[in-house]
Amino acid sequence: MNSLLDSLRGIGARVIDSIWRMGVATRFFLMTLLQSGQSFRRFHLVIREIYSAGVLSLIIILVSGLFVGMVLGLQGYETLQTYGSEEALGVLVSLSLVRELGPVVAALLFASRAGSAITAEIGLMKATEQLAAMEMMAVDPVARVVAPRFWGAVISMPILAALFSAMGILGGYLVGVVLIGVDEGAFWSQMQAAVDFREDILNGVLKSVVFGVAVTAIALFEGYDAPPTAEGVSRATTRTVVTSSLAILGLDFILTAFMFRGV
């Protein structure tokens, strides 16, 4: 009886605790936005973060994009062949990439490459008292450390997603047209007929911006909120990857329902 009560109490405490954390995270996010002025006045701070979040994620994004596109080309060809409509391969590859796989997979990779790095970096800065030292020097760590990272990552995300999609389409082209021999003209023209700039491409870019904001906000908060110990930082890093992956997939469902329902 007592153990049941205890476990109920435990669940209740955890629920309250997570709502509490949610509130703290929201306040932290708003603070980051409010303290963003300096990031734009001293844009080289943001450039540095675009480098560490974006440029350093380039390789994994480009290679993964190429392979995902090649797999799509192979699998799509196998399926379409049974209906005798191999020419629609371009449509299949480009629509799946531009609408879904580009933004989603790029964001998942970004969460595990750049998101975890952000959490670890900020967590370590906290654990080694670098953030406290900054505050003692009358420099606000949210303005100086957090906000530039936020904007650097948010700017990088759509660029990475677009590169992922473009690479994927090239991969699909390589497999479908160059390797298997689908008609090149049909591949591109059917693609162009089916992919709409505003409906598909811009919505894909919009998705990746939303994912970028979500991943970065989670990564920054987890780092800033991490217990200042080696164990705390490593746990926070894991939590960043798990939470932001879930957030990406959940948000993707919501955004897709809004964007493509009518079509």
Partner: peptide
């Protein structure tokens, strides 16, 4: 990449 998507892939 965005230009490629817009001009070569999309119907812009």
């Amino acid at each position: 990449a965005i230009l490629f998507l817009a001009l070569r892939v999309g119907n812009m």
